[in-house]
């Protein structure tokens, strides 16, 4: 789906979201009130400039629109792979973006994200995955890497990985797998403007993903293990 089509579907009553070098920023109107909108388009590889532009926007939202919900639209092929970005410390730029989003959360902004294109690794990690609730369109391409690349790097037979993917959601790409793991809260297949409205109105306490992953039988250990540690490490 194109960004424009997506925005029109999400905000039937209008929006003022601009795209500049693959970075989306602006605001829109919903029946629940105004919402800040940011994100990426054209499968943007997130480099230092994009991270700065997004962080800039988050700080602006915090200062100028206190408490306003923030929707992140995700279409990224991952972080930009370049020596120059590494030289400048790109991980620090992405961490800065992440911290700005945490600041927004701490100051009462509801953070939502919607993966509508690609949602890959470092690019996804640096903003979309920071939301209180992460949603996806059914045809979004959520992944770390495809099975062919995984087979090459792990030196495991592709057939084996394909076979295992049938029973475990941890290996193969896809919205459905991330849903089972708790990484995606829900899939918005129709009436996306209503889905958004409901998501704005809900409240989320803490990070629900491990619980979701357990309930959906996708991540069977993450919840229990972290709970055991957080309780002081003793099994009762």
């Amino acid at each position: 789906m194109t960004v424009e089509a997506l925005l029109n579907q999400l905000f039937p009553s209008g929006h003022a979201v601009q795209t500049r070098e693959g970075v989306l920023t602006g605001s829109a109107t919903t029946p629940k009130g105004a919402i800040a909108v940011m994100g990426t388009g054209s499968h943007l590889a997130v480099g230092v400039e994009a991270a700065m532009a997004l962080a800039d926007f988050v700080l602006k939202v915090v200062k100028e629109w206190p408490g306003r919900p923030l929707l992140m639209l995700v279409d990224t092929q991952g972080q930009r792979l370049s020596r120059r970005d590494e030289l400048l410390g790109i991980n620090g730029y992405l961490a800065h973006l992440v911290k700005c989003l945490e600041l927004a959360r701490l100051r009462g902004h509801r953070l939502l994200s919607l993966a509508y294109g690609e949602a890959v690794s470092g690019g996804f990690l640096s903003f979309g995955l920071m939301a209180d609730e992460i949603h996806a369109l059914p045809d979004a391409k959520v992944r770390v890497m495809n099975l062919t690349a995984m087979a090459r790097i792990t030196k495991l037979p592709l057939e084996m990985l394909e076979e295992m993917s049938a029973t475990s959601p941890s290996f193969a790409p896809g919205v459905e797998n991330f849903f089972k793991l708790g990484g995606v809260r829900s899939v918005w297949s129709d009436n996306i403007s209503e889905q958004l409205e409901e998501a704005i109105a809900r409240q989320t306490v803490g990070d629900q993903r491990r619980k979701d992953g357990l309930e959906r039988h996708g991540r069977k250990l993450a919840h229990e293990v972290s709970q055991l540690v957080a309780a002081g490490g003793t099994r009762t």
Partner: peptide, 9 residues
């Protein structure tokens, strides 16, 4: 990468 999706989350 052997459990890539779970690792990213």
């Amino acid at each position: 990468l052997h459990e890539a999706n779970a690792g990213l989350i």
